[in-house]
Write a protein that binds this DNA or RNA. Sequence first.
DNA 1: CATGAATGAGACTTCATTCAT
DNA 2: CATGAATGAAGTCTCATTCAT
Lengths: 209, 209, 209, 209
Amino acid sequence: MTSTGRVGRPPAGDSAETRRRILYAARIHFARDGYRATTNRRIADDVGITPGAIYHYVESKAELYAAVYCDTVDSVYTEFELAVVGHDDLLSQFSAVLRRACDLQTADPSITGFIVAVAQETQRHPDLLALLSPQRGRHMRFFTGLVEAAAQGGELRPDIDRRALADLLGAVLTGLARMAATAGDPQRYTAAVEVLDRFFDGSLVTSRS
Amino acid sequence: MTSTGRVGRPPAGDSAETRRRILYAARIHFARDGYRATTNRRIADDVGITPGAIYHYVESKAELYAAVYCDTVDSVYTEFELAVVGHDDLLSQFSAVLRRACDLQTADPSITGFIVAVAQETQRHPDLLALLSPQRGRHMRFFTGLVEAAAQGGELRPDIDRRALADLLGAVLTGLARMAATAGDPQRYTAAVEVLDRFFDGSLVTSRS
Amino acid sequence: MTSTGRVGRPPAGDSAETRRRILYAARIHFARDGYRATTNRRIADDVGITPGAIYHYVESKAELYAAVYCDTVDSVYTEFELAVVGHDDLLSQFSAVLRRACDLQTADPSITGFIVAVAQETQRHPDLLALLSPQRGRHMRFFTGLVEAAAQGGELRPDIDRRALADLLGAVLTGLARMAATAGDPQRYTAAVEVLDRFFDGSLVTSRS
Amino acid sequence: MTSTGRVGRPPAGDSAETRRRILYAARIHFARDGYRATTNRRIADDVGITPGAIYHYVESKAELYAAVYCDTVDSVYTEFELAVVGHDDLLSQFSAVLRRACDLQTADPSITGFIVAVAQETQRHPDLLALLSPQRGRHMRFFTGLVEAAAQGGELRPDIDRRALADLLGAVLTGLARMAATAGDPQRYTAAVEVLDRFFDGSLVTSRS
DNA sequence: CATGAATGAGACTTCATTCAT
DNA sequence: CATGAATGAAGTCTCATTCAT
C-alpha cells in the first residue's frame, strides 16, 4: 500500500529496504541541515553503508533529493486530502489540515521540515527544479483546490483574490511548521494551532465591535 | 582578471562605502542562496573586489553573517516598532506590521528574505549562534511585547496561551514573507495581506452563522 | 595533470602500502622543510596521489605529523634501547647510542632529522602538542633512565645534577644530528662521534697537566 | 657604539630607532616561531606600525631575516671572540664560550635562539641563502679557528680530524642552546654547562681506570 | 550489491607585497 | 614616513562522484 509504486519483485527483498532507509535518512538530514550541508557520507553512515553505495539507488545527490521529495510530498498531500473529507466550509477544512499537519509533525518532524524547506531549496539550487517537476505545484494545487471549492460553494465574497487567499493559507501552514521546526518543539505548533482555532470561532479576543 | 590586475591601493577606495557594499551583497546572497551556498567569491564579485579583501572588513564568513544580521535585524524591528505606534488593538497593530513588512519586501526583498531564514540557518550552522547573541530573540521579544500589552489592556481572554499567540503571529509573518520570497513576486505578499485584513474585518466570508 | 586524469579507484591500490608511502614522504619533508613549509601537495606529489587523498589516511596535517612522530620515535628509541644493551658504564652506553644514531642517520637522514626538530616544532605549533602526548617525553625518559642507572650503580659523584646531565647528553646527540642534517653529509656526524670517542678515552689531547 | 654601522645623520633620529625595533621584534619572532610562521603583521604589531611600513626599511621578508642575521651573528661571535681571550687551551676556551653563551641566553634568549635556527632555516628556505653570504660561515670559521690554534700549539694529537672536532664543538654549543630554548628555561643551559665543566676537569665520574 | 581509494573542483582563509593617499 | 585597501598566490580541507575490485 505504501510502496513507492515500483512494480516487479524486488531483487532480494533487501534492496528495496535499503533504498527506503536511504530516503528516510536523507529526509531527516535534508530537513535539518538543508540540501547543501547534507553530505552523502552522513546519510550513508545512518544507513550503515558507504557513500558510494548510494549511487546504486540514485544517480546523484540531486536525484536523491527529488526522490525524497516525491515520496514525501505524495504522502503529505494525500494525508491532507483525507483530512478535509467531511468538512464543508473552508475554515474548518483549513483547521483540519493544520491539525493533521500537527499529527505529522509529531510523528516525524522531518516530514513537515522537509516540505516547508522545499521552496527555498529549489530557489537556492535551481538544478533541483528540473527534477521536481512531476510533483511540483501540488502544494499550490491543494490550497487552490480548497479555495476554488469554497468560491463555487458561494462561501467567499466574489471580489476576493483567490490566489492570494490560497497563498495566505499556505503561508500560515508553512510559517507554523517552520516555527515548530526551529523551536525544536512540536508542542508549540499544536498550541499555536489551538490559538488560531479560537480566533476562528471568535473566542480569542474579548470583544470586537 | 576582470580588472587590470594591478596591485596596491586603488585610487579612491572609500572604506566605509566598501564595507556597506559588502554587507549589502552578502545579504542578498545569504537571503537567496543561504549561508552555506553563498561563497565569498560571489560576494566579492558583486562588490568588485577579490575574496581575500573581505577579510579586511570581517574576520570570517560567520562574522560577516553576524554583521549582516545585526544591521538587518536592527533596522527591521525598529521599523516594526514605529509601525505599531498609534494602533491600539492587537489586530490592527499586527496588520500594521504586516503592511510595513510589505513595504520592506517591496523596497528590498533581501531584507525580509534574510530575516526569515535566520532561525533556520542558526539551526543548521550552530557556530553562527554565538555570534548572533547581541540581537538574538528580538523577533520573539517584539511579538511577545505586542501580546503582553494586549493582555494587560484586557483585550485577550485570560486563558489564552500567550506564547502560542506570539508564535502564531510570528509564524504568519514569516510564512508570508517566505511565500513572497520563493514566489519571487512581492505583489503576492501584498495581496495575501489584503486578504488577511478582510478576514480580520469580517468581509472575507459571506456569512458565519 | 601528471596522470591520465581519470577518476575512480586505480587498478591495484594497496592501501597499507600507500599509507606507508605517505608517512615516509611526510617525514622527509617535515624533517627537511619543517611542519609549516611542508605542503600536502608536495607530499602527495611524492606519493603520486592528489592532496585530498591524504585525508583518507589521516584527518589533518597535524595528525599526519603525529602519525609520523609515533612511528619514528618508537623505532628510534627502540633502536637506542637495544644499542645500550651490553654496555655497563654511562659513557660507553652513550657512545653506543651515538654510534647507533650514526647508522640511522646514514640509513635515512630523515629519521634523525625529524626527531631533532620535534621539540622546536611543538613549540612553534602548540596545537601539535596534544596529538603527540602518547609518546611525548620518551626522549627525556631515555636519557634520564641512563643517568639514573649510572647513579644507582655508583658511577656518578652524588652531587651531580642528574637532570642537567641528561640534558647534556641529549643536547650533544641532538646537536650532532642537526649538524649532520644541515651539513647534508652523514659522514660528518660519524667523524664527529669518533672525535668524541677519542675524547672519552683520553686520546684527543696530548696531555693535560 | 652599538649603532648598526650606517654612516650619516639619521633622517630624524626616529628612523634608525624604528629600524632597530623592527629588527629586534623580528628576531624574537624568528627565533620563537621560525621564518615561515613569523608574519610581518606580528612584527609590525610589536613595533606599533603597519606591515606595509616594514618595506620602508627592508625590501622583503627575506631581507629582513638577513638583516637580523647580520646584526645577531656579528654581535654573538664578537662576544665569543672576546670570551676566549686569556684562555690558552682549547677546553678552557670552549668552556669560556659556553659560559658566555649562557650569559647571552639569559640576557636575551632570542639571540641564541635565532642563531641555532639559522642553519635549519636556510636549508628550509634556500632563497635565504643568497642573502646571508656576507656573514655565512662565521660559525664554522670561529670553531675552526679555535681548533687550528690548538693544533698549531701542539695541543692535539696530529691524527685528529680537525674539521670533525670543530663540528663537535659547534654541535655541543648548538645542542645546548636549543635544549634551553625548547625547555623555555635558561637555567637548564647553565646547569648542563656546569656538568660539562665537571666532565672536563674529571670530577663527574667516580673513577676511570 | 557494496567497498573504499582516488579525483578534481571548489570552499574558506592567510599572507607577503604593492601603492594611492 | 606611514597607512590601509587591495591583490594573487598558495594552503588546508571538504565533498560529490567514479570505478576497479
